[in-house]
């Protein structure tokens, strides 16, 4: 895969030859990074495509010279803002890896509480710990060039995207919903067996990962283009699911945060 030609083909300013790649994590479960080494079968091919210069979870050497930075996790403390800004200043392409980085992920579930002091007290009592009131996505602080959705990210998709970036091809994320993939996979619809599912409004690309295992979608990849959240609420209601269940799914990963806020307010007003 190594290209030694002098072709000046570039993508977002990066020469096509084996770019230097770095991985970083902010507040996260480190699962999205782990997905990269969890792909034993194609890991070696992937490694021939890029040169990894920083990956703290896997290697001791750390270099400050890279073109593509993958950043996992959401921003939850002041020092993370600083780290992120520094990474942004070095990287030509900044990739938000996973739903924590793209939307805040499960971490943003703490944002739903009115009183951030209560959140800290619940866990640490009177012990003082530093933490921002809100868990936020990377984009709240720096411009992001590419977003790879998912909690966790789907490794095949990451590799496809990285290959495209390296080869200078444009990256097109699916606009259609999970439902399309689920139907193509000929799954029994979960609503028919009495389970809730956000597949109709969630962006595809995971190959209907959860419904394939008879688990309804929780919307980890955020909204599909033209997602009709109002209609989704109707479908849930018609199938006998409470607004609370709808809210649980909608607010879980942060991709539907605006819609979740509206629904939460309307539930509490009742």
């Amino acid at each position: 895969m190594q290209s030694t030609s002098n072709k000046v083909s570039t993508y977002l300013g990066i020469p096509v030859a084996r770019p230097k790649v770095a991985f970083f994590e902010l507040s996260s479960c480190e699962g999205c990074q782990l997905q990269m080494v969890n792909n034993e079968a194609t890991l070696l091919d992937f490694l021939s495509l890029v040169e990894i210069v920083a990956f703290r979870e896997a290697m001791t050497e750390q270099a400050d010279d890279y073109q593509i930075a993958f950043v996992e996790g959401s921003v939850t403390r002041a020092d993370e803002v600083e780290r992120l800004r520094k990474i942004r200043s070095i990287a030509k392409v900044l990739v938000a890896l996973g739903s924590c980085a793209c939307f805040g992920g499960v971490n943003q579930l703490k944002n739903r509480f009115q009183d951030p002091a209560w959140v800290k007290k619940q866990v640490y009592g009177t012990h003082v710990v530093e933490s921002n009131d809100q868990a936020q996505p990377l984009e709240a602080f720096v411009p992001v060039d590419l977003r790879i959705f998912g909690c966790p990210v789907k490794k095949e998709e990451v590799e496809k995207i990285v290959t495209n970036v390296v080869l200078g091809k444009s990256v097109v994320l699916p606009k259609y919903p999970v439902c399309m993939e689920c139907k193509a996979n000929k799954n029994t619809c979960l609503f028919d067996i009495g389970e809730p599912c956000l597949g109709p409004i969630t962006r595809g690309g995971c190959d209907s990962w959860c419904p394939n295992s008879r688990m309804g979608c929780w919307g980890c990849r955020g909204p599909a283009e033209d997602a009709n959240v109002e209609q989704m609420k109707e479908i849930m209601k018609k199938n006998g699911f409470s607004e609370e269940t709808m809210l649980d799914r909608l607010e879980c990963f942060g991709g539907f945060a605006k819609h979740a806020d509206v629904l939460r307010k309307s539930i509490t007003a009742k």
């Binding site: 902010l26 579930l109 703490k110 619940q122 866990v123």
Partner: peptide, 12 residues
């Protein structure tokens, strides 16, 4: 950095 899972789950 703490993520506060024990608080997150309250009310769920």
């Amino acid at each position: 950095t703490p993520r506060f899972f024990e608080a997150m789950l309250v009310g769920k």
